[in-house]
């Protein structure tokens, strides 16, 4: 999961691909705009169009397992949504088809499809961000754009802590397994079986945080002289930020306007 190589290591600066000259904020704004577009209208054609755009972006950058995992996460839920809304949606009127005497309604299925499409738009556009930026790139960029090192640290160090914690957890779990545990039946028993793994892990993690906090202060992270590492140059980032933010405001405004007029 988090140990994915694109997330952990910076991309070596050999030859930069087209998606590497787009800055991270532009990519995030792009996710926002795509989401807002998807929410602008329940038109299914629009949704399919957006999904196509996002899929093409992914195909022309790089595909990796992260996106597929995220998709797998949601596909199951989308299927249950189709079933529940297809059967019980409150505006259901027209029977589309029946299976074993159970009727599925057109309205509910369309509603669920629309919701599912929105979810897919968000996942696919976010996938583009996930596969094309590295943690260190984001960290450097955020500090460059004026965020304090503290804020950048909080946001980014999570990505480093997680693989470390997962390893620690496996170690503790293995140690527990060696000791042998009984199969648990009730929820309380199961929760109790979690404790011998969780408590040492939590204490170890918090201990590490204490050590790290002390060390960061000793190493002068809040020294006012700290120089910001210059990261790579991006193309047209200012213009892209302005236009994407403008589009977002426009979409929100339009949505509010139609809502008011609709009432």
């Amino acid at each position: 999961m988090m140990t994915d190589q694109t997330l952990i290591s910076g991309t070596p600066q050999v030859k930069r691909k087209w998606y590497q000259v787009i800055d991270p904020i532009t990519k995030l704004l792009f996710i926002l705009d795509m989401t807002l577009l998807s929410f602008a209208s329940p038109n299914l054609l629009l949704q399919v169009g957006l999904i196509l755009v996002a899929t093409l972006l992914l195909l022309f950058s790089k595909l990796n397992s992260t996106t597929f995992k995220a998709l797998g996460f949601s596909l199951f839920l989308i299927v249950t949504m189709l079933i529940i809304q297809g059967l019980f949606y409150s505006h259901n009127q027209t029977v589309l088809f029946s299976v074993l005497g159970i009727s599925f309604y057109k309205e509910g299925l369309i509603y669920a499809t629309m919701l599912g499409c929105r979810v897919l738009v968000i996942i696919l556009t976010s996938g583009f961000f996930m596969v094309t930026t590295s943690i260190s790139e984001n960290a450097a960029y955020l500090e460059q754009s004026g965020l304090s090192y503290k804020t950048v640290y909080v946001l980014m160090s999570v990505c480093y802590i997680l693989p470390e914690m997962m390893r620690n957890m496996r170690k503790i779990q293995q140690a527990q397994k060696v000791r042998g545990t009984n199969p648990q039946k009730t929820l309380i028993q199961k929760l109790k079986s979690v404790l011998p793994v969780l408590i040492p892990l939590v204490i170890k993690t918090l201990d590490q945080s204490m050590a790290r906090s002390i060390s960061l202060q000793l190493r002068g992270f809040d020294n006012p002289n700290r120089t910001v590492k210059t990261s790579q140059q991006y193309h047209l980032s200012r213009m892209l930020h302005i236009s994407l933010t403008g589009l977002a405001i426009l979409l929100i405004g339009w949505k509010i306007w139609t809502k008011i007029n609709g009432l």
Partner: peptide, 29 residues
């Protein structure tokens, strides 16, 4: 300063050993 538990003294935000050493120096500007 080097305290006990050396792993806890890493900044936790460096991609390379070189970055880690640079941390203190960048802080000093």
């Amino acid at each position: 300063v080097v305290l006990q538990n050396p792993a806890g003294q890493l900044s936790g935000l460096s991609d390379t050993v070189a970055d880690e050493i640079a941390f203190d120096l960048i802080n000093q500007g």
